[in-house]
Nucleic acid binder design. Sequence first.
DNA 1: CCGGTGCATGTTCAG
DNA 2: TGAACATGCACCGGT
Length: 774
Amino acid sequence: MFQVKTGSKMCMNASCGSTSTVEWKKGWPLRSGALADLCFRCGSAYETSLFCETFHLDQSGWRECYLCNKRLHCGCIASKLVVEFMDYGGVGCSTCTNCHQPNLGKIGENPGLFSRLPMNRQHTNGENGMNVGKADLFSQPLVQGDDKREEFMPHRGFSNLIKTDRLDGGEILESSSTPSQPPSLNMPLAALPYSLNFATATKKLMDAASQPHAVQSSSSSILQTPSKSVLGTPPGTSKSAQARIGRPPNEGRGRSHLLPRYWPKYTDKELQQISGNLNLNIVPLFEKTLSASDAGRIGRLVLPKACAEAYFPPISQSEGIPLKIQDVRGKEWIFQFRFWPNNNSRMYVLEGVTPCIQSMMLQAGDTVTFSRVDPGGKLIMGFRKATHTKDIQGCGLTNGTLNEDTSSSGVTETPTSINASSCPSQNPEELKGLPEHLNSNHGGSSLKKSEVNGVKDKKRTRTVGAKSRRLLLHSEESMEVRITWEETQELIRPSPSEKPTVVVIEEHEFEEFYEPPVFGKRTIITSKPSGEQERWASCDDCSKWRKLPVEALLPAKWTCSDNVWDESRCSCSAPEESLKELENVLRMSKEYKKRRTGVSQTVRTEEELTGLDALASAAALGDTLGEEEEPATTTRHPRHRVGCSCIVCIQPPSGKGRHNSSCLCTVCSTVKRRFKTLMMRRKKKQLEREEIEAAAAADQENKEDGKTGRIDLNSDPCNRGEVEAVGVEEKEESGKGEAGECLGVAQAGDVVGVTELEGEGEKIGEESKGSKLI
DNA sequence: CCGGTGCATGTTCAG
DNA sequence: TGAACATGCACCGGT
């Protein structure tokens, strides 16, 4: 049940360097794949890769919080230092099962590994028996009142640890709870699952950073940790703030150690941005480049086994558990975290990720990042968009290999660093965006580019290899990248200096330009309930959305620094607009895209949208867009979305946004015109039907009278009339459709304020033109 | 028939 | 060589 093994390994602490005999325990009820060893000489923590095979707790077991390592916040010793972990949703610990006090608090209040020494001494077992924290306290699944814990403290040789100044609890607490701690300081801690030993890890990093020989050690993962100067430098002021540095696990190549490609590669700036956006302290855990399968519709994201076992809650059942993960915008998602048996092993997946992936507009090749919020332990999911291949291929530093980097996570995209670094013709300013290890001019690193993060490029990009790349290009999702001519039309703008010559052809006015058109930036126009319109554009550097005047016309390449309309947001460092507004814009962007795709696939092939559909689109669009806080679904029917033409969704809106009956806006006039035409058509049809019926009756009467003609028993005069009427209708319809007549049913005045995406006004018009009558 | 689910299999790569 | 992972595919249930 409980095993203790001893072994020998090199202490990672460069200042120690001893080949210590360490002791580790197999079978922590915490995480598989991550155990802590302690160097006998210096006390540095090891991370070993033993898999928890001895026993495996299910989620009903007793343990400490896997996320935040918190326990005993209530200070209730009688609770055996155990709390019941009730919520796997990323929330963290629940309440002490003994005193029922909430088990939430700040790290500083949390008795950490060594800060519990006074308490541990209560459990000290003999001269050398020492409680080293988790290893002792949670080596067994205990139930309340279980005192067997004392039997599982067979540690020997730890006495000197207690005496070590390094392991002073107060010092640890201070270092691990310092509020001003820069985010990067946490990164290496993240490599320690459960932040096992905050103090020693921090100390080790500091020691390593201060000792040149440690940095030179190619085998040490400390190589990739941020330098001391970086740690102490406010984000954004250091060139390293832009450095995308992989933060590796603490040590070694054990079986369950994270491969370098999963090391979180946040720049400090990104981390700061995320932390700022969420106002939280973010601890990067790992990241994964999306495969075609991950980004596909199947909605399953394959998790690296080691990462899943190291950072996600342990699961014993294949069905897994629901896992709550928050995205960088603060939206919470619940995924099913589960596994499949696979070759005597496990394959971990997150199920139900499609909506999240789509909301982030991710594709195969993009990267999702997983972080943890400390304190609290909430899981955060971010992302980084892959850059265009063309931006990288042929550029010197990356040697033509496909680099997954990067414009980054959601609201905090910073593509410039790697983009810039990829191009040989850089000025010194641009070089500031280089990761330190890529830029030999800074920091004196002599690493070759192919050895970035201690791993060859091909390894980093393995998951987007030739096969994946092919899939990437031809996957259905990626087809959206292929911009259509119709879409291109929207981006084309007359040359700014050009004045059009108006030519009238068959009573239609055309603008002629002699200069070739220029491409503009795609933007989104929204409307407030008041009717005021706003234009939104995404910065090409940081991808933040900026609110602009509706009359603003942007060049193809536009960044925050070009934002002459809003001085407070003319820099990429400026925060984005409110979340609500952004959600609205992003939703519209998505819907816009969807609508465009849908339109190109349906309307283009056949004018299937009826006048009612077009009307419903207009109504639903207006309804949705007119109300800023409305979700993507219509308020009428949660399952229906913009454009839905069902009877529910086309109901006239009520309350806010309703147009006055005298309104003469485009939509209202269209509705009125349709209504008028419809009434005329109905009247006409009725007349025709009456005429046909009368004719049929007369004909039958004649036949009966003459008794010479045969009666067609299969003929239904009414139906025949109906068919003929439909025929007439269709004929008439096509004619009117070509003439641009818009018909439909709706009550005039029932249309809400309509907000147009750029070009949508024409789009609706086009739909109407091609629409059939009802 | 279609989409979801669970598992199997082929490929890649680290040890 | 075996573990990890990407993806194919059979099965099953719902429509």
